[in-house]
Amino acid sequence: MNLRDLRYLLAVADHRSFGRAAEACGISQPTLSVQIRKLEDLLGVTLFERSSRRVVPTPACERLLGHVRAAVAEADAILAAARELRDPLAGHVRLGIIPTLAPYLLPLIFMPLREALPRLEVEPWEDQTAGLLARLRTHELDAALLASEVDGQDLDSRPLFDEPFLAGLPPGHPLAARAVVAEGELAQDILVLTDGHCLRDQALAICGRDGALGGPLRAASLATLLNMVAAGYGTTLVPGLAAGAAEDAGIVLRPLASRAGRTVRLAWRARCPRRAALQAVGDVIAARLRGFAEKAA
């Protein structure tokens, strides 16, 4: 048994397709099939039920997958630790980032990261908070940029910068005449994102609404939310980094009376061997956004 074949096993189990798994592994489908057959012969069990339409892990495979993932993760940790011993600021860092942050933060930080850490390649992965935390715990990501606290002794985090919220209003809205808007005033017609976005929960909490309320619209992206507000469909809370996009869409922005906002954090596994690289990435991002909250408020 070798590590390569265990990676092939995980690829087939995750993709539920020999074709997609082979593409992900960078090999031909016949080669992948042969290696899986050899692994089945070695283990003495059938790993997958194969049909013309789908590939499904057998109960035996399901029992083995946890051990396989742990073995591959430990092997990757050994390789990562060895790379860090040679050069802690080189190699790849897989960085998760929430969707309400990614389009606005990534353009600001990629050039500073390249200049400060030229031997480190940062690979972004966009997903909601729950998905990012799950991928952190399964070693699919090295770190994640989040806007909420992390729970569990298996994860560490550090705050990087504060991002204020702004009241986002349609042109001609009665509140647009105010210099400052009280959060409770937005509650009458506030629009929020779908469940799973931390910005949804933050918006409802700040404006004094419970999770069952928040207007009829459930937008899957902040861009959709901004366009609906610009069209006069309601109000919303706009994260400070998205202010430019909101104004481009035709939204009127006003500061909030309480100066409410969110803290963007970098989270990673407590035992991650790439701590030096992650701390360096965090330092660059924190430096790039230093003072942002004061300027945006």
Results as ranks from 00 to 15, higher is better:
D5G: 01
L95Y: 03
V180C: 07
G214Q: 03
S52F: 00
A80Y: 00
P239R: 12
L160R: 03
A242K: 03
P103G: 11
A243T: 06
G131E: 10
G91T: 11
L42R: 15
P118W: 03
R274D: 05
G152V: 06
E23A: 15
T263F: 01
D87S: 15
L186S: 01
R265D: 03
L47F: 11
R274C: 11
T138S: 15
L253Y: 11
G208I: 09
L160Q: 00
A82T: 10
A179L: 14
R7K: 14
A167N: 11
L133N: 05
I206T: 14
A70D: 14
F165N: 00
P174E: 07
G214M: 00
A60P: 01
A75C: 01
P216Q: 09
G208A: 12
L43E: 05
A77Q: 12
G91F: 10
A187F: 07
Q202C: 01
D201L: 06
S148I: 02
I78Q: 14
R274V: 07
G232T: 03
G234L: 11
A80S: 10
T31R: 13
G232C: 01
P30K: 12
L191T: 00
A102L: 02
R269I: 09
L226T: 06
L266V: 05
R20H: 12
S33I: 11
